[in-house]
Design a binder for these strands. Structure first.
Lengths: 158, 158
DNA sequence: CTTTATTGGATTCCATGGAACCTATCTTCC
DNA sequence: GGAAGATAGGTTCCATGGAATCCAATAAAG
């Protein structure tokens, strides 16, 4: 009944995952800042707001895997900078709908190709076979779905 | 001359990578805190000090992919808590050798199996085929090596 | 309908990492 | 040998996310 696989060193895989993520995140973030004056944090938040219909803070929490406090404060910052708008949800006055302002939408649209190119360049530079890259992609998607369905994983990094 | 592969959506892959990393990091960190009162940040730092011969701050920077300021402060905290010791490097008085105290070594040893089990449980729970997991592992290792060799990737998350 | 329990998210205090800056020390150049 | 340049890492200011707390609003129970 072994669903675990002693052959792949899970600890090593995880450590590599963390380091790769940090380095990629850093590099992509830097590219976005250079070209748009705004980094990945903002990009991710604007994207969630743009892509989730009827977006609320709890959606930001779920999609970005951060705490509600961080999400609320992140939205605060975008609102303060005129990129996001909060409008009260009439069916539940505890929450608001988040939407992009025209400025927010324009910035997001400008950032998208930069983001895509940065990620592509960084991943492409390693020379991974396409077949392996596809496996990594599907595996990560599966992992993400699995972890999002988990019970108590909605905490952030300490 | 296309070394890039338009078939795998690199942006999507990267987004999944970030979310998976955050959720895994959070869960492993929580497990370590529950059982040892110390989280992943400390574990990672103690591990680097234990495993890099003649470890200095710059080694922490390289291995963990953080800035020198963060590394220095991280070492400060472990030193303050009696887990790490700094001794001046006589051949270069600008730096010190980092070593674990007995308490630091004991804590690290206690945390290792918890870490391994936590990661294994989390990754195993997703039901990825072993073959895919192995591909992910080798790909991440390759990516990590490639990114560590890069020029300006030693920044942290903004 | 009223009371109790739960939920959504805002706020506060805190921890940690980044950028910029700084200083002691080492290396290179002339 | 001394001056200029480079390096190792410590410090300060700042940004951001987490945990805990809080409160308004909603849902559930009786």
């Amino acid at each position: 009944m072994r669903t675990q696989h002693p052959r792949t060193d899970a600890g090593r895989l995880f450590d590599d995952l963390v380091r790769v993520e940090v380095r990629l995140y850093t590099a992509v973030d830097a590219r976005l800042r250079e070209q748009h004056g705004s980094g990945l944090g903002r990009f991710d938040l604007l994207r969630v707001v743009a892509e989730v219909p009827g977006c609320r803070v709890s959606d930001v929490v779920r999609v970005l895997a951060i705490t509600v406090g961080a999400a609320s404060k992140g939205v605060d910052r975008q609102e303060r900078d005129g990129l996001v708008r909060r409008t009260v949800d009439p069916s539940d006055r505890r929450s608001s709908f988040l939407s992009l302002t025209p400025e927010g939408a324009a910035l997001l649209d400008a950032m998208r190709p930069t983001y895509a190119a940065a990620v592509r360049d960084l991943l492409g530079g390693a020379g991974l076979p396409e077949r392996d890259l596809a496996t990594v992609a599907t595996s990560l998607a599966l992992l993400r779905a699995h972890l999002e369905g988990g019970p108590a994983n909605v905490r952030g990094r300490a």
